[in-house]
């Protein structure tokens, strides 16, 4: 909801959309690579309305912009691409890395902690050389912090400040959130102060992150900390304490995925010289519906997903054989990269 810049006019801009499990972020970037505007919405399990609402808000604030290209990323990237009409659909790792190197070309490590997942990206000389995402367990992600803040009756926005007031952070088992929670309750019943417990929780989360996601990775400065959790100053401090040197939280830390998608869209448009596939802001008023059926043509029994706009099929994916992804869609779809989009 922030205007990064007061002045904007009829500019050529690029739109990045990051549809994650918890939040849907939209970013408008100038052709020169500056963030004009960002929108941060809760996905709330309904990605289509979230993307539409995000587009509506962008249009309301910046009615004069001229979208030159659209990039989507996040776990809902294909869906977002179908709705908005994207020029490029990219995975989160590549998008985050693109955004990080854009603002800090010397970055060697990106630590990203979001709502449901966390990742580490190792770069050398501006090129991604290794990465990891959390598997199996959501310990060490934003959702758990949210949950614990709620349990203690603390607004999540104040969590970090309170943790910074800790005098003697307690030690909390961070291996598993279930154990962490019972450990926290134990510490709280023993009479430890809330700041000490919160600081201990941050330290436990950082250890968990470094031991699981960061396992076997060579973390070198410059380290960028991005994702929603980077707003939590308690987490930043815990990370710096554990690593032993300062980390950087980029200004657009919470929308870096969307920034990366916008940058990749810009590169794609500039290199290919193509016109954008963007469907226009009117899509925020369109009636989208998603449906699915099981294809019974062969033993694979693929689950086919249909996305329609105002009753007209605009995208369809899910089949292994490609049988449902042919001409009919290619005709309606403004998406050139059907192969990228349709396969999952």
């Amino acid at each position: 909801m922030t205007n990064m810049r007061a002045s904007y006019g009829k500019h050529d801009v690029y739109l990045g959309i990051d549809v994650g499990s918890v939040s849907t972020n939209l970013v408008v970037m100038s052709g020169a690579g500056e963030v004009y505007h960002k929108e941060y919405l809760r996905t709330q399990g309904r990605p289509i309305p979230a993307v539409q609402a995000g587009l509506a808000r962008v249009y309301q604030k910046l009615p004069d912009i001229q979208i030159k290209g659209v990039g989507t990323t996040g776990s809902g990237r294909r869906l977002a691409a179908a709705i908005a009409g994207a020029d490029i659909v990219k995975n989160e790792i590549t998008a985050h890395a693109a955004a990080a190197t854009h603002f800090h070309p010397d970055v060697q490590t990106v630590i990203e902690i979001g709502g449901q997942d966390s990742k580490i990206i190792i770069l050398r000389e501006g090129v991604v050389t290794d990465f990891a995402m959390n598997t199996v367990c959501a310990a060490g992600t934003g959702s758990f912090l949210d949950q614990q803040a709620a349990r203690l009756g603390i607004p999540i926005a104040e969590f970090g400040e309170i943790a910074l007031q800790a005098k003697n952070p307690v030690r909390i088992a961070g291996r598993c959130t279930v154990f962490a929670e019972s450990d926290m309750i134990h510490k709280q019943q023993m009479g430890h102060s809330v700041p000490d417990i919160l600081a201990g929780l941050c330290a436990a989360m950082v250890r968990n992150y470094l031991n699981n996601v960061g396992k076997g990775k060579e973390i070198r400065p410059t380290v960028l900390f991005q994702g929603g959790v980077a707003a939590n100053r308690g987490m930043c401090k815990a990370l710096e304490d554990e690593l032993g040197y300062p980390i950087i939280v980029p200004r657009a830390f919470d929308v870096m995925g969307a920034v990366g998608a916008a940058l990749l869209a810009r590169r794609h448009i500039e290199e290919s010289g193509q016109e954008t596939n963007f469907r226009g802001f009117a899509v925020s008023q369109a009636r989208y519906s998603a449906g699915s059926f099981e294809c019974s043509h062969c033993a694979n029994r693929c689950e086919i997903v249909n996305i329609s706009m105002n009753g007209k099929l605009v995208a369809r994916w899910g089949s292994r054989c490609g049988r449902w992804e042919q001409d009919e869609i290619a005709y309606h779809s403004p998406i050139d990269h059907l192969q990228e989009l349709c396969y999952h």
Binding site: N91, T94, V128, T129, H344
Partner: peptide, 11 residues
């Protein structure tokens, strides 16, 4: 899995 593979191929 898809996200990791795509990112790995990009890398």
């Amino acid at each position: 899995i898809r996200t990791r593979l795509e990112a790995f191929v990009d890398l």
